[in-house]
Structure formats: structure tokens, C-alpha cells
Design a protein around this nucleic acid. Structure first.
Lengths: 324, 324
DNA sequence: CTGAAAGCGCTTACAG
DNA sequence: CTGAAAGCGCTTACAG
């Protein structure tokens, strides 16, 4: 029922070897023969079985991508960049998420051992870095897409957390704000530490309130400091979601943004345009991060050695009304 | 270098056939033999090559998913549901997006012919339904995840656009609103027509302004009707994004929501909680849609015949401050 | 309960 | 320029 290379060979009156050669455009084939074979391929609608090709060649022309969750729109953007690049190269993309603990990690490890894909792109789910490092040592090409810091053990693509936070601080400073409140993300994330340092180098005097990247944590942080009577004229939140929470708390307390208090976020999610007022934020180039990582991995699979140093893609301050 | 079934057989002193039998837990194997083989498998860390298994069995234990774009968070939610379900069943998920026109469609068709996956889940990219229907006729199991209407040609999972819009209308009616402005999505989408009809059955008198699901179209629609002096006391937008646009236009014009004008959206994107005021909206069960579609497809691959009728998952009105 | 052999659909030395 | 044959790593009748 399925058309195989054998059918094509028989129909064209040549060997399977020859058919294989014209498929893979090896130069050693006679022009007329090749044309005849191509004609038969067209007529029969023959397409090589990806499974058989993979088995014979020892590679699957497929890359895997592991992410913690798809519902963070930051990751969906990265994924879009990855898919575009991988597809354009004629590779397939196998998607995995590790959101059900050890069981999912084990299942994923099986896929790796089963050689389901040739290389792996990863936005690290928490506590999986050791496993992934082991896979990399075991010979699996890996590229890390990293919003959380640097892991020099294998190739990675990162963004400028330090400089991005510094640019936010500079923007506040230039608009005359001198008493910022910083709402952080989880403090064990290297990106959070980078953002703290980058900000502090420009505006060393500020209050810090630990957050967890949730909308709620931004709201609570602001409520707490308003209640405590902290004097602050601006908020720098470590992501857009908590910045949105901060905006809401300020509004509820009757403070106007940006007149009383300016607010800056981090990420530039689509959401950032729709807050009230629209959010000034440090844009992470999520899509580009995905594209770049995919290109790196595909290059590596093609023989180009991956760079030793992390590839750095710059953030960019996007000014909207919450901090003009 | 790679551990194969042959290595295990040799080490355990049995044939490859026997190893294969214990891997696939066929009952005909002697207990002691099986134990010995399992032990060797563990020691050697043997995992069957998915490619070889697929070739021998004629199936890949992989499903494909085709989506128009990942940056709509509605689709990311669906995808999350799909991934969870597919992973739990031990299948892999190959992801494809068709966002570069004919070229991508052709590339995708190749993957189908190459038998890269056993079945396909699809959120239809525009103008691909014919191609997909052809694939289905060609023997590829397909389940459609449909936010745009009904296509009885193959199994599908849909939501209640008609009833959802009706529930929005009823909610407005019950809170005393009698002059709604409806901002639609693209009018050729069946879901848009369903929403229009469902709304009209409850609240036949209303203004209709065509939109395109963008934030801008919601904003423009409201601006236009304010300028024209249309009298309206509420807005029903066909998606959350255009509802957000409506909110912004109303605020800019000094109308207060919900006092002057109530606003209801459709989708319940995460964004809906962060508008000002938070958006009352008709929730589509995106994640559940993905889970259900995946379960249907996996069932079909396992032999359960797919249902003739579309599987219908209900929408739900989520009341927030924009229309209390 | 167990194994030898054929087969899944390709690619790739090797020989001509 | 072309083909016969072995091999990729499994599964599955078939025979015992």
C-alpha cells in the first residue's frame, strides 16, 4: 500500500541504490537516468519514510525541546522562534514539558536514550539541570535557552539581565526618581541576582521586596510598603506580571501612575501593552532567543562547533506611559 | 557504542526474540529467564531505539500537532493540554506551525507522507482544511480542535460559541443593560456567526461593528460609535483582546466601566484578569479542549472508533468587575 | 517456553 | 555511472 523505494526502483528499471542516489542528489548519476527516476517518484508520489531513513543513517533529523510550561507567554514566544527555525531547516521538533515531577523526567530521559531526536533545546525546568548535563556528557548535543543565569557546562543563549536592569534604573534616574522600590523574582535564580546588581550599580539606594514573579507578589509588595509608610517614588518589578500587580495595588490605594509613582517591569509580554497605564518594561528578545538557540543547535548537528561562550542577546527598554 | 538488543541477548545468553518478548511483556516467557534478561537490561542501561521499533512495527508512537501560531495564548493553552495528555500516554509530540504560506504547507505534507507521526491534532491554520481533509481521506487519523465552527468531515472537539454568547447576553440583560454594542471577529469564521446568533437570540436589539480580534479593532469600534453618538450601555466583544481595546477607548473618552458602560469579552485569556477593570468574559476551556482532542486521537490509534459527532465542551461566563 | 530467519524501508561501502 | 549485498535495530510469524 505504501510506496517504497523498491516500487520506484522497479518502475524506473534501476536499483534501489540508484533511486537513493537521486533522492539525495549525489552527483554520480547519469542525467537521463536521474530524470527518469524523478519522473517515477513524482508519478507515484513517493516520499522516503522518515523512520527508515533515520534508522539507516543513524539520525532522525529531529530536535527535541524541553520546557517547564507553555502557559508562560515568554516561553511560547521562544518556542515560536524555535519552530520557525527548525522547520525552515527541514527538521522536526519534538516537544516535551516536565511538569509532573520525577515521572516526567524519567520518561523524558527514556526518549533521549531511545534516540528520538538528534539534539536538544532546553529552557530549564527546575531541578533538571543535572540530568541534562549528564545527557550532554553522554553525547547529546544541547543548547540551553536561559532566562535564569549562566551555566557554562554547555552552549547557551542568554540575555542581558544586568544591563537591562541598569537601563531601567538609568531611566528612572533621568526622570528624577530617587527612591525606588524593587520587587524581585525568586532569589535563587541567577537572573534575579543579575538584575539586582545591575540596578544597584546605578541606583544603589532602594528598598528591596522579595517576590516570586506572580501578579500577587507585586501587589502584596506594594501594599506592604504603602502600609509601612515606606517612601518610594517608583517601582522596578523583576517581571511584567508582578509589575501589573504593583499597578493594581497602587491604583487601589489611590496613587496615580506615573505622577505619584513610576513603574517599570521586565519581559515585555504582550500583556504589557494592555495594563493601565501601559507598562514601561525591559524587553527580553524571546523569539530571537529561540531562533538563535535553534540555529546554534542545527549548526552543531551540521558540524559547526558550538561557541564556548554564551551567546548574548541584548535587552531593550521599552518606554510606555507607566514610566515615561 | 550504543547498547542494542543484540548486546542484551548475548549478555543474557538468550535470543533477541526473547529479549524483545520480555521488553514487550509477552506472557510466554519463563519467569527466571525474564528476570535474568531484565537484570541485564538494567545493568547495561538498554533502551530500545524508537526509530527501529517504529520501523519494525510500522508506527512511530508519535502524534503531530499543527497550529497556526503559538503566540496566541489561547493556542498555547490548548497545546499544554495536548502535551500533558500525549506525554502521559508515552507518545511523542511533533509540533508544526504553518505560518509561511504554501512552502510550509508543502513541507508539512511531506512529513505526513514520510509517516513521521501516527495521527494529527490540528487547530486549523487558514486555508489548510482541504489539505488536511485529503490527508484524512488518505488514511491519517485526524482530530480537529476547532474554535471556528464545525467540520463534520472528521472528528472534532468544539466549544459552545452559541450558548456562550447567549450567556453573555443574558448577563447583560439581567443587569439591566438593553443597548449593547457587539464587536465581532472576522465574519467568515463560523464561531463568529455562532456568537452573533447566540447573542441575538437573547438581545435582538444591538449594534454590530465588525472587528478582527485585534486590540485595535475593539478600540476603533468604540471610538467610532462614541463619535457617531450611538447610544449604547454595554459592549460584547468577540474576544478578550478586542474587549481590552474597548476598555481603553472608553477610558480615554472618560466613560467609566462598568457604571456607564459594561464590557464583556470572550476567551478568558490570562490577560483578562489584568485589565482595568478586570474583564468579565466567556471562558473557553482551551486546555480541556487540547486534552480531550488528544485523548480522542490516542483512543482512535488504540482502536476505539472516534465519535461521529463533534465533542462539545461548554463555555462558562466568568464575572469580574467590567460587568458585575 | 524458545530461537532462526525474514522483514520493516532505507543507506552505504564495495566491486565493477 | 550502476548494482548486489550488508547493515541500521527492532518485531513477528513460523517451527520446534
Amino acid at each position: 500500500m505504501r510506496v517504497t523505494i523498491g516500487d520506484v526502483a522497479r518502475e524506473a528499471g534501476v536499483s534501489k541504490t540508484t533511486v537513493s542516489r537521486v533522492i539525495n542528489t549525489r552527483s554520480e548519476v547519469d542525467g537521463a537516468t536521474a530524470a527518469r527516476v524523478r519522473d517515477v517518484i513524482g508519478r507515484l508520489g513517493y516520499v522516503p519514510s522518515s523512520g527508515a531513513v533515520g534508522l539507516a543513517r543513524g539520525s532522525s533529523r529531529t530536535v527535541g525541546m524541553l520546557v517547564p510550561s507553555l502557559t508562560w507567554s515568554w516561553i511560547a514566544e521562544v518556542l515560536q522562534g524555535v519552530v520557525d527555525t527548525v522547520e525552515a531547516a527541514g527538521y522536526g521538533l519534538l516537544l516535551y514539558t516536565c511538569n509532573r515531577g520525577t515521572e516526567s523526567v524519567e520518561r523524558f530521559a527514556e526518549q533521549v536514550s531511545a534516540r528520538a531526536f538528534d539534539g536538544l533545546l532546553v529552557v530549564e525546568p527546575e531541578n533538571t539541570l543535572d540530568t541534562i548535563a549528564a545527557m550532554h556528557r553522554g553525547g547529546l548535543p544541547v543548547v540551553l535557552i536561559d532566562d535564569r543565569g549562566r551555566h557554562p557546562a554547555f552552549p547557551s543563549v542568554v540575555t542581558t539581565n544586568h544591563a537591562g536592569a541598569a537601563s531601567a534604573a538609568r531611566h528612572l534616574q533621568e526622570s528624577g526618581r530617587t527612591r525606588p522600590l524593587v520587587v524581585t523574582g525568586p532569589e535563587h535564580f541567577p537572573c534575579v541576582r543579575d538584575r539586582l546588581r545591575g540596578f544597584a550599580e546605578v541606583l544603589p539606594e532602594h528598598h528591596v521586596e522579595p517576590g516570586d514573579f506572580s501578579e500577587r507578589s507585586g501587589r502584596v509588595a506594594v501594599e506592604r510598603h504603602l502600609a509601612a509608610g515606606t517612601r518610594f517614588d517608583s517601582v522596578f518589578a523583576h517581571n511584567d506580571l508582578s509589575a501589573a500587580g504593583a499597578l493594581r495595588a497602587l491604583r487601589a490605594a489611590g496613587r496615580s501612575v506615573p505622577e505619584d509613582i513610576a513603574v517599570i517591569g521586565f519581559d515585555d509580554l504582550p500583556m504589557a501593552r494592555h495594563t493601565e497605564p501601559p507598562l514601561t518594561t525591559v524587553r527580553q528578545p524571546a523569539r530571537l532567543l529561540g531562533e538563535t538557540a535553534a540555529r546554534l543547535l542545527l549548526g552543531h548537528l551540521g558540524g559547526t562547533p558550538a561557541p564556548d561562550e554564551p551567546v548574548v542577546l541584548p535587552t531593550e527598554l521599552v518606554v510606555r506611559r507607566s514610566a515615561p
